[in-house]
């Protein structure tokens, strides 16, 4: 009766347990407590939320392990943390301190402009962003155990998350109408491994959990992404850049559970105070867009 750890099933399994939940960005142990008390299923520990990374500029890197450890101590729910695209040593460090999930994230400044991390080499699971089916399946082939839309982080504008969700889910719907002999060329066109393309056609969905992220700021935004067919929600700057974080956090949690019930959505949307001010994603110059990072 040999126990096995670090298997792909265990990595995907943790994401399956997060489904129907909200994962919140936090920058202090106090914020992590607020998120947990509001019903978050996990927190993303980082030094600056995407809205501040956007504002302050400079190189954005993995957060100080000391801060991440303090947040891990403060809450009983899983703690995630971000590494730069391709920076496998930052990932080794986060694995060494025992974070529960690593986000190989376009929100940080990429460390490699050609290669992502070989995530199969790690026991800790990874989540990665994707704008379309090909990108999602490339990340899964590299070992990602969970996918999220990229959206446009730190804007408070949901439009890019909707675009990426519609792209991935629409491509899956079209794939299901294709004949088997058409899959070879389709896999080549989208730059994805054939076996994963076949698997997606058979399942009618990604073979891993698929969350929405990047610009979600209100309970209605969260329910919109759920009704489009996402499995759960990341909220980055949207909570702690708003006027009343505890109330908004709890409202978004309720909205994700009751995403199909407009009466409850109306109730939880009342009196939340100002949402984060945000910037229009369409108004961003090309060099300020984070979603284009990743290959």
């Amino acid at each position: 009766m040999e126990a096995k750890t670090g298997s792909y099933e265990l990595k995907v399994g943790l994401a399956q347990m997060l489904k129907g939940g909200v994962i919140m960005d936090v920058v202090t142990p106090e914020q992590a407590k607020i998120a947990e008390d509001a019903g978050a299923v996990a927190v993303m520990a980082l030094e600056r939320v995407p809205a501040d990374i956007r504002k302050e500029g400079g190189v954005a890197r993995m957060s100080d392990p000391e801060l991440i450890l303090k947040i891990m101590d403060a809450v009983s729910i899983p703690v995630m943390a971000k590494v730069r695209i391709g920076h496998f040593v930052e990932a080794q460090i986060l694995e060494a301190i025992g974070v529960d999930y690593i986000d190989e994230s376009e929100v940080l400044t990429p460390a490699d402009e050609e290669h992502h991390i070989d995530k199969h080499q790690f026991k800790v699971p990874f989540v990665c962003g994707a704008r379309n089916l090909g990108e999602a399946l490339r990340r899964i082939a590299e070992g990602a155990a969970m996918i999220r839309t990229k959206g446009e982080a730190g804007t408070g504008d949901v439009v890019e998350a909707v675009r990426h969700a519609r792209a991935v889910l629409g491509e899956i719907r079209r794939l299901q109408t294709m004949a088997d002999e058409e899959l070879y060329t389709y896999a080549k066109e989208i730059g994805a491994p054939l076996d994963l393309v076949r698997q997606v056609k058979e399942l009618g969905r990604l073979p891993v959990v698929n969350f929405a992220a990047g610009g979600i700021a209100t309970p209605a935004d969260a329910a919109l992404m759920m009704q489009l067919g996402m499995d759960g929600i990341f909220v980055g700057s949207g909570i702690f850049k708003s006027e009343n974080p505890p109330k908004r956090a709890a409202a978004i949690v309720k909205a994700v559970t009751h995403y199909n019930d407009p009466a409850i959505l109306a109730e939880v949307s009342k009196g939340l105070g100002e949402p984060m001010h945000g910037v229009q994603a369409a108004a961003l110059p090309e060099e300020a867009r984070l979603a284009g990072r990743g290959w």
Partner: peptide, 16 residues
């Protein structure tokens, strides 16, 4: 006891 076996890297599968 919650999280009695530790964090995610200690998650495991076994036949019982």
């Amino acid at each position: 006891e919650r999280n009695a076996f530790g964090r995610q890297i200690a998650s495991f599968e076994v036949d019982i």
